[in-house]
Every structure is written in C-alpha cells, then in structure tokens.
Design a protein around this nucleic acid. Structure first.
Lengths: 158, 158
DNA sequence: ATTGACAGTTCTTTTTTAGAACGATATCGT
DNA sequence: ACGATATCGTTCTAAAAAAGAACTGTCAAT
C-alpha cells in the first residue's frame, strides 16, 4: 500500500492511520510523550535508521502533529514539539499502552505505571460515552452514516 | 524493522504495536468491528492483497485477537471472530476514529456517527482516569517504572 | 588543527508488499 | 455428467520500502 492513498479515504480511521499507522510512527510518538525532542535522542533511544526518523518527523510536521522550534542559531538546530493536535493523540497512545498492560505483560508485570496528578492515584485509562458517562464496549455501539459518508452505506453495528 | 523484534521489548506500547501497529492490521480490525468475518469479504472490501490478508489474519489468530470458527464442513470454511482480547481493542480503534473525526475531516463532516445503545445518544469517546473519573490529558500524568521495567529507567512525565 | 555534537543525506543490500495467476475443494445449474 | 461459481488460500515475479553503514556540512570546544 502506498503511503498517500490512505489519507484520501472517506474513513476517519484510515485517515488517522495515514498519519500514525505504522510501527515507527507510534514508537516516535511514544518518545514524544516521554519528552524526547531532538533528532539524536530519538535516534539513539529507538535505534531507528536515520533515514526513517527524518521521514517520520517530516511527516508529523506536515500533518501538524509536531512543530519544529529553533533552540539555537549557528548552526540552526530545531526541537520537535507536540502541537495540540499531537497532544490530542494521547488517548490513542494510552489505549495502546493499556491493552499491552492487560494482554501482553510477562510474569514480571507492567513496565510502566501511570499516576494522575489530579488525584494522585495510579490509574488505568477508561473510555466512556461523552453523553451518559458509561464505559464503552463495542457491542453497545451502533454506527450510522454521517454527513461525510461515501454514497450511502448501510448503517451497521460496531 | 523486523516483525518479531518488537514483541519482545519491555514496553507495553511496543508489544501492542507488534500486534496491531501497521496500516493493514488496523484496517482489518476496523472491518472486524463492522462485523466482517470472512476472507473474501475482507479482501473485496479492503482491496488488500490476498497474501497480506492471509498473513494478518494468521497473526491475529496467533495473538488471540481473532479465532477461527468453522461455519461449514465440506469444504471446511472458517469465519474470523473477535475474541474478548480482540474486543478489548475497541478503545484503540475508537480513539483513532475520534482523532480522525476531530482533525482529519473535510468540509462535509464525519463519515460515521456513533450511537450508544445504553443512552440512545450520539456520542464521542472520552478517556478518563479510572480513579477520579476526570478526563485525561498528557500533561497531567506522571509515569513511574513498574515491576516489569527494564533495569531502572528514571521516572519521567507523560 | 583536531575533535566532537548535531541534523540530516546518500548509497547498496535485504526485506516486504503489490499484483496477478494458480490450486484445491465442494456446490449448483442444466 | 459438465462447466460455472464460491471460498480460502498459495505461488510467482516486479516494485517499493526499510536496514545498515558511511558521508556531508556547520559550528563549538580544546
């Protein structure tokens, strides 16, 4: 599949996948949320090839997930900082981490614990319905074509 | 990056990414949540090559995300059904869709609307803290090494 | 003058994917 | 009986992407 075919699809999942849907993008993103900002630091922490790292960073900037901020002149050096759009990816990252914590840990347990500054507790992320506040599960959701739907696909459950 | 190096990493994100972290895996998963179950139906809806589809389905079965259920004998035919472990991927899929709905829609609006059977309303998914119930954002979370942490990485914010 | 940090780019080899065709098995229509 | 169709893959070759290592350019520090 070529990179650029996905973002034109009439599906929000496909369009997001065009931005973050590959191994390295998600790992780079993880580092961003761990406050990593510079080329060399990404590279040494991830052992990603420099070519791919340059590529992913460029893509994130293009899609407005990261922005380049100059931190010195002569030579001009930039840091890659999460934009609001990038910060909004946090639920994706957290839900991925949480699934791994639940289903892929070995006998030693979780590699990372998360503490909520608000309440001070260690927590898990929970996804709820914005309207009634109940936890969401796939079986309790109906989907309907929206205004941006292709032609008129039948409504289905998911 | 080779497929099999990721799942051994000491990071829940990396291990989950080993399972779902590529374009086709996520698109196949989307179809699963839309009740698609058979090889031919995946293939014709996604225009994925048959080779890759066979590959991804096999991987999902290996990781316990899908299970093969025989729906006829002679010839033996199987459907691919989400397991509980697969259903647990729903928050990941929903958060990906929601980011796309928020940041990648065109002027026509969302392609799909989601209705919660519980309350009957159209909703957005919201990620909250399991302990205090407040919505989560990256800046309000501290991370600490857990029991399964590699050596002893410094605690950091994210 | 030499070394090192930083942010990439260029090059060749290896791996993965695309795209099309083929196989196996069984049912259906005539 | 016979060919067409359905289903679930596998095999093949060409094209695309990634790996891995080396290289470039700029400047600072010693």
């Amino acid at each position: 599949m070529r990179w650029d075919t996905l973002e034109d699809e009439q599906c929000s999942l496909a369009r997001t996948v065009a931005v973050i849907g590959d191994r390295w993008s998600l790992l780079v993103l993880r580092e961003c949320f761990l406050r990593v900002r510079r080329f060399e630091e990404f590279q040494s922490r991830l052992s990603i090839t420099r070519h791919l790292l340059a590529d992913r960073l460029k893509k994130f900037v293009k899609f407005g997930v990261l922005r380049k901020v100059k931190y010195q002149d002569r030579p001009a050096r930039y840091e890659y900082i999460l934009t609001q759009r990038g910060l909004d990816l946090y639920p994706i990252v957290m839900s991925i981490v949480h699934w791994g914590d639940t289903h892929m840990v070995d006998e030693r347990g979780r590699p990372l614990l998360h503490q909520h500054k608000n309440c001070g507790n260690f927590f898990d992320p929970v996804m709820i319905c914005s309207e009634c506040g109940e936890p969401l599960s796939a079986k309790q959701v109906h989907t309907h074509p929206g205004p941006g739907a292709p032609q008129s696909p039948a409504a289905s459950e998911a």
